[in-house]
Design a protein around this nucleic acid. Structure first.
Lengths: 356, 356
DNA sequence: ATGAAAGCGCTAACAA
DNA sequence: TTGTTAGCGCTTTCAT
């Protein structure tokens, strides 16, 4: 007699004249089963329209959901305009798909006024979580995950205990870039930074503001400049890594007379840098003859062609893979080390000798 | 006596001296419970480090996972370079988050040679699936989901039965755009299209290839041109909606002598159109004096500033919201109608009178 | 190679 | 208002 509800393994088993446990074996392959029996079960399943074991039952039984929660560091919209985040996610997915894991998207805090944690953080099923661009030290998301006993991998965050961190050598990379500019004779260097924290101010940062950098990436990239002996003559903070904010920064930084104007601008991302290039051109300045511009990330920027941006190339796909690997290890019960991936300076056509 | 494993509701209940069902009520609020009792349960939970009901148990019991599987029409990497897809996803997430639903990312087929369906499609827990840029008619993903009895919402796909479709008026929008160009006196109009199908060829499309458009968006947008009486003098198919492919198309289409060169190029996406603008400029052509360029989507293109692209603006966030709404309705047992959202022509600075 | 039985953690009837 | 009971669908000992 046919069942009216969606068939279960029990229905299939009885239709095939075997026990549920045998039927289970036919699907999972996790145990000895006669070929003939297996075929009988599969046939019964087909005729009942049974499409395989219900994942919910399987998950409860195994205690695993097969889900990796990925907390994108900010509103989705913003995170996805970030080519770095997108490419990293791509590398991550490539790595964990073979492990039978899937990515659950978890929006980060939408605004600083709304520090509430997304409900998914509190109650979605997940075996592990990845925090993209890992927030601040006292992140409530981190707390909630810890309370739930969910292990966490943090990308580009502060060094925390109890959490595996994957990042790049921001500081060293930026120092290399600064050295490159110094070698070209630049002495007045300005920098355009990523947002310092969730409040995302835009504009020139004064000394007070510079003490107040909550996020680790802008902090480390700024430190890298100084490491190489380049004390920026101006620091312009942007509210987001977008071309238009780079252009705005250029207008603010490069409007002055030749004598006091910076001869080089270092942006903390390629998107910002490309905005600086466009903004500089708008002001009638030639790049790199009048002003050198450099970035960070190593993206393709087709709209800058035929120019090639001087930048620090980070291995984004590798970073995603490293995160995926760490996820796999943790779920396998291992405790992987923190990882810092190397970066490389790429000299393009947007930097040249300082004008004299 | 404390428990060594992660505490369960039963542990909390016994610590609080109540039954499990009462303890359940303390967390779910789905039933009458005395304030004092509830507090006792919550206290017991706190002291045991119990962080709320295990979602796996809850899901099995309720038969719902709270998960919306989103099949991105192509490899993640590619899908996320598509600003339209990203913004749509953002609108979708905004709409379903309040419903207590989360998005599980499911990669589409990576390459045409590998038509295998992602394992997540076969066996991940999800209550409903959304197909972004909804594939072809005989999509194996669609089949698999149907077999599993998972309802589907298709975005920008063919009109299918048994599936709710959300889309925009591609054809009408493109017809409006074509009429605009016609009114400006353009008679030699070329078009740069999105990929015709998973094989993603690049280059001029001949008559045979034009019969072979598997994906519905390029099809409809092409039809829209013709509807308005604009028979393109050349159709250039791109392998992806990227700036560099637009530039390549411009080089191929606009290299000829003035007399035979198209006076206008219509691209099927803004990214492609901006590439066409850049490519035209590379060839020494002025936009719009020598050649008019128009796109489709209505994106912000900061690197084109101060120019503003003439384009067909589609309501991307609304589309995401419409998808989310449809998802909610379906899960509530309703059967929402297909939806076609309106678009609007935006006249920018990149189109002008045909040169004479 | 197959079957019987237990139980993953929870919620929802229903009874008290 | 609280407790008892019965599963949700599956996998996994363990016995046969």
């Amino acid at each position: 007699m046919p069942v009216s509800h969606r068939p279960t393994l029990a229905d299939v088993a009885s239709a095939a004249g075997v026990s549920v446990s045998t039927a289970s074996l036919a699907f999972s392959g996790a145990g000895p089963i006669a070929d003939a029996t297996k075929q009988r079960v599969l046939d019964a399943a087909a005729s009942l329209g049974y499409s395989g074991p219900n994942p919910l039952g399987r998950q409860l039984r195994s205690g695993k959901s097969g889900i990796v929660g990925v907390v994108v560091g900010d509103a989705l919209r913003r995170a996805f305009r970030e080519p770095v985040a997108v490419q990293l996610l791509d590398g991550l997915v490539d790595t964990i798909t073979p492990l039978g894991l899937g990515v659950l998207l978890i929006p980060g805090p939408t605004s600083p006024e709304q520090p509430a944690v997304d409900p998914l953080v509190e109650s979605a099923a997940m075996d592990i979580a990845v925090m993209l661009w890992g927030g601040t030290l006292d992140d409530p998301t981190l707390e909630a995950l810890a309370r739930r006993g969910i292990p966490v991998v943090v990308v580009e965050g502060h060094d925390l205990t109890d959490v595996v961190t994957v990042g790049i050598d921001d500081r060293g990379g930026m120092a290399d870039l600064a050295a490159h500019l110094r070698d070209l004779g630049h002495e007045r260097v300005a920098t355009v930074t990523l947002p310092f924290g969730p409040d995302r101010r835009g504009g020139l940062a004064d000394t007070a503001r510079l003490q107040d950098i909550a996020w680790s990436i802008p902090r480390r990239r700024l430190d890298g400049l100084v490491d190489a002996g380049v004390q920026p003559v101006a620091v312009y903070e942007t509210p987001a890594s977008l071309v238009e904010h780079g252009a705005a920064a250029a207008r603010a930084l490069l409007a002055g007379p030749v004598g006091s104007r910076p001869t080089a601008v270092v942006a903390q991302s390629d998107l910002l840098a490309s905005g600086v290039v466009l903004g500089a051109r708008e002001l009638g300045l030639r790049v790199p003859e009048d002003v050198s511009v450099a970035g960070f990330d190593g993206l393709d920027l087709p709209w800058l062609a035929p120019d090639v941006l001087t930048t620090v190339v980070q291995p984004i796909a590798d970073k995603g893979a490293a995160v995926g690997l760490a996820v796999g290890r943790i779920l396998a019960g291992e405790t992987p080390e923190d990882e810092v991936l190397p970066v490389a300076l790429r000299t393009g056509t947007t930097t040249g000798p300082a004008p004299r």
